[in-house]
Simulated assay, not measured.
Amino acid sequence: MTDVVSFRLWPPVAIGVPLLAGLAVSAAWDDPVEPGSWRVPVGWLLVAVFVVWNGWSLWLFAHHETGLLPGDATTSMIESGPYRLSRNPLYVGLLALYLAIALLASSFWALVLLPLAVALVLWGAILPEERFLESRFGEPYDDYRAKVRRWL
């Protein structure tokens, strides 16, 4: 048994490629819809949420001395902080940042491609990670999965 997750697709790539594609399409052609001025404060609020949420999540990785990056060993399960609300708080935070950037850039096409980013991170990272954690931690992970939602 390995102590390292084998991703199908690295999470920043799964989320970043649709975002960059949407921003590129918006830059090349006019967006069919202008979302309005509300997008700026909502975008900045989402940036703040991302910084706090992901900062807290990353701090917990360091505190538990467990691997964060691909290739790092996973030595413990984290069930506190944001992990009480989501089994994947880092991905939730990255998707909030995606939405923030799309809103701040006023990119209709990036917003349209957000579901693709969700699907790619689910297929490429979350499902392989869940299989890995099930095999690595067994019943404690099953109990955690029964109590905490995948997203929020």
Rank of each mutant, 00 (worst) to 15 (best):
M1F: 12
D3F: 02
R8I: 06
W10Y: 14
P11C: 04
P12K: 06
V13G: 03
V13A: 08
I15P: 00
I15R: 01
I15Y: 02
I15L: 02
V17I: 11
P18S: 05
L19E: 01
L20T: 01
L20Y: 04
A21C: 08
G22F: 04
G22W: 02
A24F: 11
A24H: 06
V25H: 04
V25F: 10
S26Q: 04
A27Q: 04
A27D: 05
D30A: 15
D31C: 04
S37I: 10
R39A: 15
V40S: 13
P41N: 12
P41G: 02
P41Y: 10
V42C: 11
V42S: 08
G43W: 11
W44D: 06
L45E: 07
L45M: 14
L45R: 05
L45K: 07
V47S: 11
A48S: 09
A48N: 08
V49T: 08
V49R: 05
F50E: 07
F50H: 10
W53H: 12
G55M: 13
S57R: 02
W59G: 13
W59S: 12
L60I: 05
L60A: 09
F61C: 09
G67K: 00
L68K: 08
L68W: 03
L69I: 02
L69M: 15
L69E: 14
D72G: 03
D72E: 14
T75C: 01
M77G: 08
E79N: 11
G81S: 04
R84K: 15
R84T: 06
R87C: 09
P89N: 14
P89H: 06
L90D: 08
Y91W: 11
G93S: 13
G93K: 09
L94V: 07
L95Y: 02
A96S: 14
A96T: 11
L97P: 05
L97F: 09
Y98M: 07
L99C: 13
L99K: 04
A100I: 13
A100Y: 08
I101S: 06
L103W: 05
L104H: 05
L104A: 07
L104D: 12
A105W: 13
S106R: 14
S107M: 04
A110L: 01
L111W: 12
V112S: 03
L114R: 01
P115D: 05
L116H: 01
L116E: 03
V118L: 14
L120M: 09
L120H: 03
V121D: 03
L122H: 14
L122M: 13
W123F: 06
G124L: 02
I126F: 00
P128I: 08
E129G: 12
E130F: 02
F132R: 06
F132K: 00
L133V: 07
S135V: 08
S135E: 15
S135F: 10
S135H: 14
R136I: 00
E139N: 10
E139C: 01
E139R: 15
P140R: 00
Y141L: 07
D142C: 13
D143L: 15
D143F: 07
D143H: 13
Y144D: 12
Y144P: 04
A146G: 14
A146Q: 05
A146K: 12
K147C: 10
K147E: 14
V148C: 03
R150Y: 01
W151H: 11
W151S: 10
